[in-house]
Design a protein around this nucleic acid. Structure first.
Lengths: 149, 149
DNA sequence: TAAATACCAAGTAAATTACTTGGAATTGAT
DNA sequence: ATCAATTCCAAGTAATTTACTTGGTATTTA
């Protein structure tokens, strides 16, 4: 039940992008340098994020990425699902998928998986990027030290 | 963010054990046969369950397993944690662990992981085996078909 | 025209998962 | 006393997944 590096790095990168987006378009190289993530690997993550409309890109020199919507409209859930796929704990309760097993109506353990799925979705969909930016600003103003993302 | 077969099979097996425990001690072979899981693999799962006190064993012929506590006292969370380890989505927010990173105090993404962890724990710790047995009994009485676990 | 960037497809080493194999130890039934 | 049924235990292994890397092409600005 662990997130992969896709979710972890992607979340860090998205927060980094959000925090630096007042400076205009942000290159992957700058995110990679600040966050200590491989730039080539970030490319793959941002391809997925772009496909979901969470970021938009500008090609060419001085190009880079920016948020695809307002921070308030981008949830942690959307980011994680773009990167990790459905957050359902087992395939048989994936939201949209057809891989539902034949036992679906009469399965007791299925009830458990649905509750876990809903619990996770409720949490991640209730947190938006702007809340995290706020958290970051608070930490920045309080601490003398560097404020990690 | 998927459960492994340990969690999935183990949960099924535990429910099977709970439902059949009125018939006395239950052998792994019988669980394996009913649930279509490899008996040898179940052994590994039950070793972990036993270590956590969730089941207790009787060796020798006519031996097997029984619940280590009343169904009401065994939560889905305890079962899943025995089999999968901590349900925290990333290592840095594992409940008991020392692998906390140096940034712990000033990390914004950490706040996300903690909320997800707490959301999952709240759900799984609130479901107990006796509730699932009740669900199973309800399904059994309503449906003409077989009532899967 | 050159540098900086996004975009793309494939390859790969390491780790993890999902088991299997081959036993030894224990116990109840005959 | 023996045998069959069981738990218990340690290793081995094939397949899959993860976490990248490599080696480009396309696009845009300076």
């Amino acid at each position: 039940m662990k997130l992969s590096t896709k979710g972890r790095y992607g979340m860090k990168a998205m927060l980094d992008l959000a925090i630096h987006s007042n400076e205009g378009i942000v290159s992957l190289k700058s995110i990679a340098d600040r966050q200590g993530i491989s730039e080539n690997y970030l490319e793959q993550l941002f391809a997925a994020l772009k496909k979901s409309g969470i970021v938009k890109s500008t090609r060419g020199a001085q190009g880079g990425y920016e948020l695809g919507a307002k921070p308030k409209e981008i949830s942690v859930g959307a980011i994680l699902r773009a990167l990790e796929g459905s957050l359902a704990p087992v395939d048989c309760v994936m939201e949209n998928d057809a891989s539902k097993c034949s036992r679906q109506e009469n399965c007791v353990t299925r009830l458990i998986w649905e509750k876990i799925r809903d619990g996770i979705n409720d949490v991640v969909d209730s947190i938006t990027l702007d809340q995290l930016i706020e958290d970051y600003d608070k930490m920045s103003s309080k601490s003398d030290f560097i404020y990690y993302i």
